[in-house]
Design a protein around this nucleic acid. Structure first.
Lengths: 130, 130
DNA sequence: TAACTGTATTAAGATATATAATACAGTTAG
DNA sequence: CTAACTGTATTATATATCTTAATACAGTTA
C-alpha cells in the first residue's frame, strides 16, 4: 500500500504522508474509506506506531483525513484550499527544474516530460475526478 | 555573492553549494577563477569555517572546484553530469508534476513555470554559455 | 467484558547540522 | 627566511530532528 525507502533522506513520516496523500488525491482511496489503524500500519511497515501517529495527525491537520477515537481514521478528501501544499509542490518543482537546467537539460525536454507524466496518469488513475 | 536563508530547512552548507554551483554553471564565475578563501567566506557570511570547508570539499568531489593547499580554491567548470543525479531530479520532478496535475493545475501553467525558472536564472547569469 | 480504535506523554537513542578550537602543511609576498 | 595567507584534518560540543520505546487513558464495538 505504502512503499518506504530507507535510503531516501526524507523522513519516514513524510514518506507515509506522501503515500496516503497520493492515494487520496488520485482517488484510489475514496472519501470516508477507512485507513489501516495506527498500530496495524506500523506493524505492516515494521516501524514504530508513533511515526504513523505523526503522519496521520499531520494529514488530519492538513484536511486529508479525519479521525474518530475508537473507530479509526478515514479519508476526508482533497482539501479545497491547500495553498500551502501547492506552494510546497511549486517549490520542489522549481528546485528540480533549476538544477535540471543547470545540467544542460533542455527546456523543451522538461516540458515534454510534463506531458508524459500527464499521459501516464490518465492510464492508471481511472478513479481520478475529471 | 551568496545569499543565506536561515528560515529555510536546507542546511547552510547546501545553500553555499547551491550558490556557487549556480555561479559556476551560469558562467558568472569563470574557469580557474579563484573563490574566496574558506576563512574569508566564513567571515563574510558570519558562519563557521568548517561549514564552508564542507561545502568546498563536496563541490570539489562533484567536479565543480579544484583546490590547491596554500593557494586557494578555483573553479573547475561544469562537470560531466551524473546520470544518477539526473534520475533523482527527474523523479522529484515527476512527483511534483503528478500531484500538481491532480490538484487541477494546468499543464500549460506548469510549462510556463519552467520558462519562468529559466528566465529567472538567466536574469542573474548574463554570462551563461549558449 | 475484551479487543479493538485514536491520542497523549515521557524517555532514550541515533543522526545530521553547526560551532569551536586547534593543528599541520603548502604558497607567497615582503 | 619570515609572516601571513592558503587548504586540510581532527576532536569535541551543542542543538535539533527523527525514531523508537513504553506506557497510559479514553472512546467504540462485537
Amino acid at each position: 500500500m505504502i512503499q518506504l525507502n530507507y535510503r531516501d533522506a526524507k523522513p519516514i513520516y513524510e514518506q507515509v504522508k506522501d503515500g496516503f496523500r497520493r492515494l487520496i488525491v488520485q482517488g484510489v482511496m475514496e472519501v470516508d474509506e477507512k485507513l489501516p489503524s495506527v498500530r496495524e500500519m506500523a506493524s505492516s511497515l515494521a516501524i514504530n506506531p508513533n511515526t504513523i501517529q505523526r503522519a496521520y495527525r499531520e494529514l488530519e491537520q492538513e484536511g486529508y483525513l479525519y479521525a474518530v477515537a475508537g473507530r479509526g481514521s478515514f479519508v476526508a478528501g482533497v482539501p479545497e484550499e491547500d495553498s500551502a501544499r501547492r506552494k510546497e509542490l511549486f517549490a520542489a518543482f522549481d528546485a528540480a527544474v533549476e538544477e535540471l537546467l543547470y545540467l544542460r537539460v533542455g527546456e523543451e525536454e522538461i516540458c515534454q516530460r510534463v506531458a508524459q507524466v500527464h499521459q501516464k496518469m490518465m492510464g492508471k488513475g481511472e478513479k481520478a475526478k475529471e
